[in-house]
């Protein structure tokens, strides 16, 4: 459990971090909490020559209320997110999920940006942030651009972030009135990663009809995806238990090939996706007031 040799760099600003990234093209990696990258380095499954530590860059940490939503710095830890009063007020879903990530030590160090950029197929935040419809901001030494979360998750451990870009901010739009949210996960008993996790956001109108729904699934396939077929079935109905059940049955439709490993076969994951979706949607609906 020893890493290969690397050089440690600790820039003070995002601009400087971006400059370092472009200088050491392909040989440098950004590290913040180090909860994904450092274990891989210790196992020598990743051997970056340069490690750019962004955890001390002030502009990357913290939660700000902006017009239309919250802006969360990419290097903000799960613990800070879970404990934040504004997050708890506006996005209980984020706090609920943050509290379920791995264990206390990981939550104290691990960051929202790290989770999204690493894109672990069983990570909690990729699904939660996808359900919340966030917009990400990333900077290279040349430009800053906005990336919709919908276009961010590309494949297994792969995002649309370019090698020269530093992920800066996660912007989450406020939820409509009468919206309920829930994150339901079956966790791997060893790693506490999601075997399957589902984030659900349900909005109802005054007469209880579902006017909008966003459901995202993690753990089931190579990347977190939205269960759009499920969402479509939900919208426009005054939801009953059996309607939710019918909708949840389609929650795996966008997964394609389900993951199979020593903990859960593809068939079992497909089944859990349906159960988790049903439970998450039911809970979210119960909270929509």
């Amino acid at each position: 459990m020893v890493t290969a040799q690397f050089e440690y760099l600790a820039p003070a600003t995002v601009a400087e971090a971006a400059r370092l990234l472009s200088r050491y093209k392909g040989e440098a990696k950004i590290v913040a909490g180090g909860q994904s990258l450092i274990p891989l380095m210790k196992l020598r499954l990743a051997e970056p020559k340069y490690l750019i530590d962004v955890s001390n860059i002030k502009e990357l940490s913290g939660i700000k209320e902006e017009r239309g939503g919250l802006a969360i710095g990419a290097a903000t830890t799960y613990d800070a997110i879970g404990a934040s009063a504004v997050v708890r007020k506006y996005f209980p879903l984020l706090a609920e999920a943050a509290g379920q990530v791995a264990d206390l030590q990981v939550r104290n160090k691990g960051t929202i940006g790290g989770s999204l950029a690493h894109a672990d197929p069983a990570g909690d935040f990729p699904a939660v942030i996808l359900a919340l419809g966030a917009e990400l901001e990333a900077s290279s030494s040349r430009a800053t651009r906005k990336i919709s979360i919908e276009r961010f998750n590309v494949d297994l451990l792969t995002t649309s972030l370019r090698p020269s870009e530093v992920l800066k901010t996660v912007r989450i739009p406020f939820l409509a009135a009468r919206t309920g949210t829930a994150y339901y996960k079956f966790e791997n008993k060893a790693s506490h990663y999601a075997v399957v996790g589902v984030a659900a956001i349900v909005t109802v109108n005054a007469s209880g009809v579902c006017t909008a729904a966003r459901v995202a699934v993690t753990g089931a396939g190579p990347k977190a995806v939205r269960a759009k077929r499920t969402e479509r079935i939900l919208v426009g109905k005054a939801l009953t238990a059996s309607q939710i059940s019918t909708a949840a049955k389609r929650a795996g439709a966008e997964i394609g090939d389900f993951n199979g490993d020593i903990h859960a076969s593809p068939e079992y994951r497909a089944h859990l996706t349906v159960v988790a979706a049903e439970r998450a949607i039911t809970r979210a609906l119960g909270r929509a007031k």
């Binding site: 499954l45 197929p121 069983a122 190579p222 199979g260 490993d261």
Partner: peptide, 17 residues
Amino acid sequence: GMLARVGQRLIGQASKS
């Protein structure tokens, strides 16, 4: 080797990818 010991959950999807 190490990949087999710590990567079992990813190997299936990785080879497919």
